[in-house]
């Protein structure tokens, strides 16, 4: 079910596009192994959703990739530069929005962004342009002259986001970017992430599942420091394929009548008007049921495939692993 190997073994031809390559990274805090032999990669034009329950190692991984934390073992390569051997070149290709926005509250938005532009070695002449571009894409144009301390949490979050993209780095790491935003801002931010995903590689760490479905191309679920799922959004649909139907009739037939249909493995009745129909993958009996229902006048008024939601998949993967 969890086919990681195809994703992890990238052929040399694909390597040209690989922006972040994480190899066998481990990290311990004292006796606690926060991240164990983690390996994955991100290509250009890809938004990677990084999911996991609290304490699974998401933030630790983000910190390792962003150079805030050194890995005990393993290597991180960003845009072809090893993070330990050539830290400056690697970090120049990187924009990082940490979990807590790194803001100097005594500066105005413009001053702060200018400082960030300078830190990222943007030439003096281009700083203003870079700053305005970052402000525009994060919706900060109206607050440029205001003190960061006086901004609301949502605006502060956006300033931090602007900081991460000001030098338009190839790799953007976002640790829970939509925290504290209102629903409209969340939609805008997701739109921005999608936009960024077109020519950058984006890693998005979050525990908000719809966010992943809305803005990511690929999903990784981490639990207890190890990857338990690494799958494209399309591939994810396979995991979430429906294998059962809920059918409701005014005048329900005997379950045995439905069990005879091809592909159906079992039918359970809830004693009321609802029937639960389980079927084989690949043979969906919906059409057949509808046909029979009109033929025998069962009074069909509801038929619904029961999909596995990302949430259920998430719970299944993270709880099954933590038991072993």
């Amino acid at each position: 079910m969890l086919d990681q190997s195809t994703e992890l073994q990238s052929s040399p031809a694909q390597n040209a596009d690989v922006l972040v390559d994480v190899k066998d990274v481990s990290r311990s805090y004292g006796n606690i192994r926060a991240v164990k032999n983690l390996s994955f990669s991100i290509r250009k034009g890809e938004v990677l959703g990084f999911l996991g329950p609290n304490g699974a190692g998401k933030t630790t991984t983000m910190q390792i990739i962003s150079g805030n934390l050194a890995a005990d073992e393993g290597s991180v390569t960003i845009a072809g530069h090893d993070l330990l051997q050539q830290p400056k070149a690697a970090k120049a290709a990187l924009g990082y929005l940490p979990e807590q926005p790194p803001l100097y509250r005594e500066l105005t938005v413009n001053e702060y962004l200018d400082y960030c532009a300078a830190l990222n070695r943007i030439a003096r002449k281009q700083r203003k342009e870079a700053r305005e571009r970052a402000k525009e894409s994060t919706g900060l144009l109206d607050v440029g002259g205001r003190l960061i301390a006086n901004l609301s949490k949502g605006f502060q979050q956006r300033v931090a986001l602007a900081q991460a993209i000001i030098h338009s780095p190839p790799v953007i790491i976002l640790d829970e970017p939509t925290i504290g935003l209102d629903p409209i801002q969340i939609r805008e931010t997701r739109g921005l992430i999608r936009e960024l995903g077109k020519d950058h590689g984006v890693i998005l760490s979050t525990h908000i599942l719809p966010e992943v479905q809305a803005s990511c191309d690929r999903v990784q679920i981490i639990n207890n420091g190890s990857l338990v799922l690494n799958e494209t959004i399309d591939g994810l649909a396979k995991h979430m394929r429906s294998l059962s139907l809920t059918v409701a009739f005014r005048r329900p037939p005997a379950p045995a009548q439905l069990e005879q249909l091809p592909g159906v493995t079992a039918v359970q009745s809830d004693g009321n008007q609802h029937l639960q129909v389980l079927h084989h993958p690949g043979s969906d009996p919906t059409e057949e049921i509808v046909r029979l229902a009109t033929q025998h006048d069962w009074g069909l008024y509801e038929i619904q495939p029961l999909g596995v939601s990302l949430e259920e998949l998430f719970v299944e993967l993270t709880s099954e692993k933590s038991q072993t």
Binding site: S66, A89, P98, P102, L119, Q163
Partner: peptide, 13 residues
């Protein structure tokens, strides 16, 4: 105030 990560993730030694 966690602003150190700004410096750590910037291309600075």
């Amino acid at each position: 105030s966690r602003t150190l990560s700004l410096l750590f993730s910037a291309p600075l030694s």
